[in-house]
């Protein structure tokens, strides 16, 4: 009898033992990087999307609901970037703690100012986002700001480690600020960029690198021959770099590169899957190096 009762007590208490660790689920490696940098060993972390996928086109998998079911906090880039799968996965995860508007839902885009806010909500202009360009992970300073807000949120959910979260978010901010001046010098004479999609906008804007053109005629629509012709005509004689990411088709960047004689750079938009702050800064460093130079 006593044995039976003890076993029952044990069964009831088992989940409590896992309470010590906050369970965080990140939509992609960008916010996972911040979680890892700020919360380190205090949390258990799951990432839903691999870094080589277009977050806009991902589809929901049951394993996402599995991960979200027991989560204390979900971190997303937001501004409708993960709209095709994350809201549905959250709704189907039957976990009221992580619904938008509650402390368990953290959206990076809601913590900083966005570019391209407003604009016409007209799909003949492509897959537009009137709420703003969601690719804030390309701006290290905004990510540092998001980190401070995330530390605040983590501290609310896990007051025991609050000091640590704030200290680490601050330290990450300092590291970012420390690199900004160097990067700004490196990019002072950057020739400018033709980008496949406006996913590098925040990086260009941060370092005042000119955006010379976009390969997609409108967002979400693949490059057309006539659009490439127009770009070639307007850019011949200039210097620049052509940028595209791992999940974008290489044919248009390559043909434009051939026509203009420009350097082509293919880089991953998201930091590596297991990135922490340091790996993220190296990731941005790679982009900075791709932007710098005279374009040859």
């Amino acid at each position: 009898m006593l044995l039976a009762r003890t076993v029952w007590l044990l069964v009831l208490l088992l989940p409590l033992a896992a309470w010590g660790e906050l369970k965080v689920v990140s939509s992609s490696s960008s916010t996972a990087m911040l979680v890892r940098e700020i919360a380190g060993a205090h949390v258990g972390l799951t990432v839903l999307a691999p870094p080589d996928r277009d977050l806009h086109l991902l589809q929901v998998r049951p394993s996402m609901m599995r991960a979200l079911r027991g989560a204390d906090l979900v971190t997303a880039l937001g501004a409708d970037l993960e709209q095709g799968w994350l809201p549905l996965a959250i709704q189907q995860a039957a976990n009221p703690r992580i619904l938008p508007g509650r402390p368990g839902y953290f959206e990076a885009a809601a913590q900083v100012d966005l570019l391209q806010v407003g604009g016409r909500a007209d799909r003949s202009l492509g897959d537009v986002h009137p709420v703003g360009n969601p690719h804030i992970n390309m701006d290290p300073l905004r990510m540092a700001q998001v980190g401070l807000a995330l530390a605040q949120r983590l501290a609310e959910l896990d007051p025991q480690h609050a000091d640590d979260y704030h200290a680490r978010a601050g330290a990450f901010g300092d590291r970012v600020a420390g690199r900004l001046a160097t990067w700004q010098k490196e990019l002072a004479s950057a020739p400018g960029v033709v980008s496949y999609h406006l996913d590098v906008l925040y990086l260009l804007q941060r370092f005042k690198v000119p955006l010379l053109g976009v390969l997609e005629p409108v967002p979400g629509v693949p490059p057309t021959a006539s659009h490439l012709k127009g770009l070639t005509a307007s850019l011949t004689g200039r210097q620049g770099v052509i940028l595209y990411t791992t999940y974008q088709s290489e044919s248009a960047p390559k043909s434009l590169g051939r026509l203009l004689g420009w350097r082509i750079e293919r880089l991953q938009l998201e930091p590596p899957l297991h990135a922490d702050g340091g790996v993220y800064l190296e990731h941005i460093e790679r982009w900075v190096r791709a932007l710098a130079g005279d374009g040859r």
């Binding site: 997303a76 937001g78 501004a79 409708d80 709209q83 938008p100 508007g101 509650r102 402390p103 839902y105 953290f106 959206e107 885009a109 809601a110 913590q111 900083v112 966005l114 909500a121 986002h129 009137p130 709420v131 703003g132 969601p134 700001q145 401070l148 807000a149 995330l150 605040q152 949120r153």
Partner: peptide, 13 residues
């Protein structure tokens, strides 16, 4: 100016 408190909701259309 950055919000003094992290924003709870989401940015959505």
């Amino acid at each position: 100016i950055a919000a003094s408190r992290p924003v709870m909701g989401r940015v959505s259309s």
